[in-house]
Simulated scan of single mutants.
Amino acid sequence: MTNWSPPGPAILFCPADRPERYAKAAERADAVIIDLEDAVRAESRDEAREALVNTPIDPNITIVRINSAGTGDHFRDIKALAQTDYRVVMLAKAESAEEVAGVGYQVIALIETPTGAMHADEIAAAPNCIGLMWGAEDLVAAMGGRSSRFTAAEDNTGRYRDVVRQVRAMVRLACATHGRFAIDSVHIEIADTDGLHAEALDAVNLGYEATACIHPSQVEIVRSAYRPTEDEVSWAREILDAAQHNPGGVFRVGNQMIDSPLLGQAEAIMRRAESIGT
């Protein structure tokens, strides 16, 4: 079976206990995460699992976030999944390769605890791990912290604190090492459209394949950040066209010497252009 990969950069969370929103979320975003974990109150999870089974949407654009390994909800989530056609699971609070392997589906491991962060490399190496996502707020809460970002009183940029940025980098490095895709964390300030756009642009430049969204209004902002500019596409096409006539070595295009890293950047730009459209 071919491993699943994000069909586009904007992936929208949808609470599993709101089945009337499933199809709408799938229509608005490139993929949808039906969430059986944080978005659903503990007392509503049985109802959410019933909704998951009884309200099917396209499995090719659907991820199901399940509860962390070793919990009763985790095992009940797996049992409910067996009654659906979904094949891609996001494992909340993943902390080991063994937990990922135990799920038995294609797994996007969610790195959102200190233990998970310290084991991101081995988690990404699990045979059924297809990608990683990371979560800033759960991570900081698990460390006993109060905020993932500098506050206005400290630093008016709203940027991530250093330890959070480190985990973001660790996740991307682990994915690159093992050939997995990486999904960037949600931007929880829905009104901060400029901040989301800047963060998504940074994710693109680090090689992230997608950014998770918590509100439909964030989808087009993320797409616009991941969408290559006309100048980028023109540059990439020129590089790739020239490469066909210069196999196996360094070559010149305009004022640039093109080698393997720049060729890889051109290929990445064209993949994004084909995925999103320009």
Rank of each mutant, 00 (worst) to 15 (best):
I108F: 03
G249M: 13
M133E: 05
K93A: 07
G116I: 11
V103R: 05
D162L: 12
L12W: 07
L201S: 13
G195E: 04
L110S: 06
H74P: 05
D30R: 10
T157R: 06
G264C: 10
E112L: 06
R87F: 01
T55R: 02
S96V: 12
V32M: 08
A142D: 14
E27F: 01
E98S: 13
R227V: 07
A136I: 03
T151V: 08
T229I: 13
E98C: 02
I61L: 05
M170E: 04
V250A: 15
E47T: 11
L12Y: 02
P6K: 08
N128F: 09
S275D: 08
I57K: 07
R21D: 06
K93I: 10
A26F: 04
G131M: 06
G158R: 03
I258K: 04
V186A: 15
A191W: 10
S44H: 15
K79Q: 15
E37Y: 07
M118D: 08
I108Y: 00
E50M: 03
P228V: 00
I34N: 04
D38M: 05
G195W: 02
E220K: 03
G131F: 01
L196Y: 03
D194M: 07
R165D: 14
Y160A: 13
A25F: 14
A94C: 13
D259S: 15
Q244S: 14
N54F: 00
N3V: 09
A152I: 11
P19I: 11
E230Y: 00
N128H: 10
A273N: 15
I57V: 15
I269Q: 02
A203I: 07
R21H: 11
E154G: 08
A243W: 01
L12H: 05
I188A: 14
D162E: 12
E27Q: 15
N67D: 11
S224K: 13
A16V: 10
I78C: 06
A142Y: 01
M133C: 14
N128T: 08
E220W: 01
S185G: 08
K93Q: 13
D58E: 13
V103L: 04
S260V: 15
N156Q: 13
N255T: 15
V167W: 02
Y226M: 08
A10N: 09
V253K: 09
A101K: 13
S224A: 12
I269K: 04
H187P: 00
D162G: 03
L132M: 05
A97T: 11
S217N: 12
I11W: 09
C14D: 02
K24D: 12
G102V: 06
I108K: 04
R76T: 08
R146L: 10
P7T: 14
V204A: 13
R161C: 03
T62N: 13
